[in-house]
Design a protein around this nucleic acid. Structure first.
Length: 314
DNA sequence: GCCGACCCTGGCA
DNA sequence: TGCCAGGGTCGG
């Protein structure tokens, strides 16, 4: 039991909302609150098993790295930097909320009830294969599938008293093996099993540019998107999610059924039928994305995450 | 550019 | 028990 603390107000990071916003799939809330009656979150990030607690009254996030090995020399400054980087705390969410509220009354109204919803900076490999699982799926099942994939192909990291064995996200190499498709099919991945194996092979063989290159600030987001869409099971929507959530692009708007509904009902966009929002046409997709990008500016994808989270009715 | 198929689950009538 | 939607993508 050795928690450290990070000074962060709720307006900059709302842990509960952010971790449930559907951008990441490996965070779980403990069934029991801690001694102070606060929610405890456990997740796996780049081989680290993390426990996080938000103390709203103190403007603090308490954190603990659970799978420290004996003699681990990692120092507090590194851990703090690791978290600041993961949650992108260098970007002021307060400033962004203010800007979005100034330009859009609809956002302003929503944001009041949903403060601190932030886009995280996740591992590209994990994000690619997690969002391939997201196709025609719901968040609960995506989480189950991602966890199953980690248990099957990822390295063991830690045995949690409540959640049992926690594994790292599998490497691209391990997902490119011939045994992967049958294994994932057995695990109930359905048509996504072959997408995962096929995409892993493509990444390994250099069928697309390296993920690190696509994540680089010097690669424009339209190029990142085009490259990602070469992967099997990755269309425009999934490519936009990956770009936004793990490749440091801030303007992509993943237009899914929720965003379609939001554009239709909250923003009264013309030509949208609320009764058939599944499989958005290329044209409508572009229109909706353009609308929000014009409205919100360079961090439109971040604003979208706030509206999306609000729509989830968590 | 528009369908229908695709795997599987949980919720609901 | 049957139907349907769930953060879509692919192929015709």
């Amino acid at each position: 039991m050795s928690f450290s603390s990070l000074k962060v107000p709720l307006s900059e990071l709302n842990l509960s909302l952010t971790l449930r916003s559907g951008q990441c799939f490996r965070w779980r809330r403990r069934s029991e609150k801690n001694k102070d009656g606060l929610e405890v979150w456990v997740g796996v990030v780049k081989g680290h098993v993390l426990s996080l607690v938000q103390d709203q009254d103190q403007n603090m996030i308490h954190y603990e790295f659970l799978n420290k090995r004996h003699g681990d020399k990692r120092i507090k400054v590194d851990e703090e930097e690791f978290l600041r980087n993961y949650f992108q705390l260098h970007t002021s969410l307060t400033d962004l909320y203010k800007h979005w509220s100034d330009v859009d009354p609809v956002f302003k109204k929503t944001a009041a009830k949903f403060p601190g919803v932030r886009v995280m900076n996740q591992d590209p490999v994990e994000n690619v294969f997690s969002f391939i699982c997201a196709t025609a799926n719901n968040i609960k099942r995506i989480q189950k599938m991602v966890e199953a994939m980690c248990l099957e192909f990822g390295d063991h990291l830690f045995d949690d008293p409540e959640f049992g064995p926690l594994h790292a996200f599998p490497s691209v190499e391990s997902l490119s093996k011939e045994t992967v498709t049958p294994a994932l099919t057995r695990l109930g991945f359905g048509f996504r099993a072959k997408y995962i194996s096929c995409s892993a092979k493509m990444i390994i063989s250099g069928g697309i540019k390296p993920l690190e290159t696509l994540s680089s600030p010097s690669t424009p987001s339209h190029e990142t998107r085009t490259e990602l869409m070469k992967l099997s099971g990755v269309g425009k929507k999934v490519a936009d999610c990956i770009s936004l959530f793990s490749m440091a692009k801030t303007e992509p708007i993943p237009v899914d059924t929720h965003v379609y509904q939001i554009a239709c009902k909250l923003y009264k966009m013309k030509g949208l039928d609320p009764n058939k929002s599944n499989s958005v046409s290329d044209k409508k997709y572009k229109e909706i994305a353009n609308f929000f990008q014009t409205l919100f500016g360079s961090h439109a994808g971040w604003a979208h995450s706030v509206l999306f989270t609000a729509d989830l009715k968590l």
